[in-house]
């Protein structure tokens, strides 16, 4: 079976202005929602307590709220998730009460209201720890970007490195934009997904760039635009099939992974979809605008012998 039987190269680069405009708009929208609504940060980052409890029968949210209120926590949110028997309780930080004492008090209150309550999961994070996790997350994001850029600059050329990282940041910002728009909870697991997307999406750019370099070597007479068009067209089949396969796995996680992996898979899904788009239609035009040419790539390639020749 073969889906992509494309005889002629698709002139992707001549749509450059349109695709860049689309990217810019989605990007700006994401930034707007991020600035306007902000991320719905989970307890991992804000500090606070999250409790997951279940009942043998359908949970009485009103009664649970009363029990939580009795501890003196007015800002707590109580909601169902998954089934009607499972309840998620979120408690804000209380400066005068230690986090361990807080969850214990709430649990005691819940047990008093209904002795059948079962505690499935408690996550309490102090304000300081939350702040640190937040900072470390941002630092990881920065370091990944720098690391990838350095590697690509070494292996290809700085123009490609910049283009790939811009395309990737575009993906990351759009994922965050979605999370801000829908106010999905952003926690450490989602952060892991975002960072995984960063590594995954750069793959796309690398595959295309690899082809561009090869084409520069093979298509001696072609112009830059033609070379890039050909590279994208030739790798498109692989791009779509790989992404489809990865997406199959992610969908499986979305369906079977339960609450903890739900937002994780959502972030990956958005990342994969925009990853296809950005690697093809964002990274390459940027590389072109930055002025990649046969000359500056060839010198880069000659410093390091190409793998095809190095292999036996």
């Amino acid at each position: 079976m073969e889906i992509f039987k494309i005889k002629k190269d698709i002139p992707f680069m001549s749509y450059g202005r349109l695709t860049t405009a689309i990217s810019l708009i989605t990007f700006l929208l994401s930034v707007f929602f991020l600035a306007h609504r902000g991320l719905n940060l989970g307890v991992d980052f804000t500090g606070g307590t999250m409790m997951e409890v279940s009942y043998p029968q359908a949970a009485d949210i009103g009664k649970i709220r009363e029990a939580v209120d009795s501890v003196g926590l007015k800002d707590a949110t109580v909601q169902n998730f998954g089934t009607s028997r499972d309840v998620l309780i979120r408690l804000p930080l209380k400066p005068e009460l230690s986090i361990s004492a807080l969850s214990e008090q709430v649990l005691t209150a819940l047990q008093k209201a209904d002795p059948n309550v079962k505690m499935n999961r408690v996550e309490s994070v102090g304000a300081q720890v939350g702040q640190e996790l937040y900072e470390n997350g941002a630092l990881a994001l920065l370091l990944v970007s720098i690391g990838i850029m350095a590697y690509l600059a070494l292996r290809f050329e700085w123009r490609f490195a910049v283009a790939a990282v811009v395309a990737n940041m575009h993906d990351v910002v759009i994922i965050l934009g979605f999370f801000a728009f829908f106010q999905w909870e952003f926690n450490l697991t989602v952060l892991a997904a975002v960072l995984a997307v960063l590594g995954y999406s750069v793959n796309e750019s690398v595959v295309v760039f690899d082809r561009v370099r090869e084409n520069f070597r093979k298509m001696r007479k072609a112009g830059v635009q033609e070379v890039i068009n050909n590279a994208i067209t030739r790798t498109m089949s692989r791009t779509v099939i790989t992404h489809f396969s990865t997406q199959l796995m992610v969908l499986s996680m979305l369906f079977f992974g339960g609450e903890v992996l739900h937002n994780f898979s959502l972030a990956l899904t958005i990342g994969i979809l925009f990853g296809i788009y950005s690697s093809v239609l964002v990274a390459s035009p940027i590389a072109m605008y930055l002025g990649v040419s046969r000359e500056n790539l060839m010198t880069g390639a000659e410093k390091k012998p190409a793998g095809a020749e190095a292999q036996p």
Partner: peptide, 15 residues
Amino acid sequence: TTMIAGLALFMFGSG
């Protein structure tokens, strides 16, 4: 490139 992302996650990630 994926490895770079993974290692950075390992170094700065928690939990």
